[in-house]
Amino acid sequence: MHLNENTKILGRRVILVPYEARHVPKYHQWMSNETLRELTASEELTLEEEHEMQRSWREDDDKLTFIVLDAETYARDQDEITAMVGDTNLFLHQDPDSQQQTAEAEIMIAEPDARGKGFGREAMLLMLKYAQAQSQLKLDKFEVKIDMDNAASLHLFKSFTFVETRRVEVFHEVTLERPITADWIKWLDQQVDLRTQSYQ
């Protein structure tokens, strides 16, 4: 999606930047890890296929993605590749049951040393706030689909007051949803301050 191609989001611990071609080699290296692919329900791709996927994230109107940077590492080195720790994504679609405009959210902290530091929580809150604030997206709700064994992700989204709506044993997957209501937007505003800069 072109919506965020010139937008950098500044958090306390993390910085979110658009997914660019220069980020692909490190991202591809992450996704060579079988455990990470299983947790994210991802297929192993060649480097060229990964570049095609990056172009799809940039061009397609139903996809929104940011690369997550460790803000401290970036402040020290001014090098996005060194500072890369993960990514956060939204897939936009219309819910077939409710006809609501829905954004399926994903968060991945790929660097083992970056886990357990609050990066995933802040990055996801920033992504939810950014998307909710974009009037052109016309979102009604967020949802997540999480592997039943991924206790950390389940705990994270339940702490955002997402509620379980489906459990599909054959896919070993739990779906949680969060309608975008005035009360929840107020809660979100209390959790995170959305600060953006122009990204070139």
Rank of each mutant, 00 (worst) to 15 (best):
L3S: 04
E5A: 08
N6D: 14
T7V: 13
K8Y: 01
G11I: 02
R12T: 15
R13K: 15
P18M: 04
Y19N: 11
Y19F: 15
Y19R: 09
Y19D: 07
R22L: 15
H23I: 05
V24W: 02
P25N: 03
P25E: 06
K26N: 02
Y27N: 05
H28I: 01
H28N: 02
W30H: 05
W30N: 03
M31Q: 13
S32T: 10
S32M: 13
S32C: 12
S32W: 03
E34C: 07
E34I: 06
T35V: 10
E38C: 09
E38V: 09
T40Q: 09
A41V: 13
A41C: 10
E43K: 13
E43D: 13
L45N: 07
T46G: 09
L47C: 06
L47A: 07
E48L: 08
H51C: 01
Q54M: 09
R55D: 12
W57M: 05
R58T: 07
D61C: 07
L64Y: 12
V68L: 07
L69M: 07
L69Q: 07
D70Y: 01
T73M: 10
Y74H: 08
D77L: 11
E80Q: 06
I81K: 09
T82C: 13
T82E: 14
T82R: 15
A83H: 05
T88R: 03
L90C: 10
L90D: 05
L90T: 05
L92F: 08
D95V: 07
D95C: 07
P96R: 06
D97G: 11
D97K: 08
D97N: 12
Q99N: 14
Q101G: 01
T102P: 01
A105I: 11
E106W: 01
I107V: 15
I107M: 04
I109Y: 02
P112M: 06
D113F: 09
D113T: 15
R115L: 07
F119V: 08
G120M: 03
A123R: 03
L125Y: 02
L126C: 00
Q132W: 06
Q134I: 04
Q134P: 00
S135G: 08
Q136V: 14
Q136K: 11
K138N: 13
D140P: 00
V144R: 00
I146T: 05
D149F: 15
N150A: 07
A152C: 04
L156N: 01
K158G: 08
K158S: 14
S159R: 10
F160W: 01
F162S: 04
F162W: 04
V163N: 13
E164D: 08
T165Y: 02
T165G: 01
R166P: 01
E169Q: 11
V170D: 14
F171R: 15
F171P: 04
F171N: 15
H172E: 15
E173I: 10
V174D: 01
T175N: 03
L176K: 03
R178L: 11
R178M: 12
T181R: 08
A182V: 14
W184N: 04
K186Q: 13
Q190L: 11
Q190E: 15
Q191S: 04
V192R: 00
V192Y: 00
D193E: 13
D193T: 11
D193F: 03
R195W: 06
T196Q: 09
T196M: 07
Q197E: 14
Q197V: 03
Y199T: 00
Q200K: 06
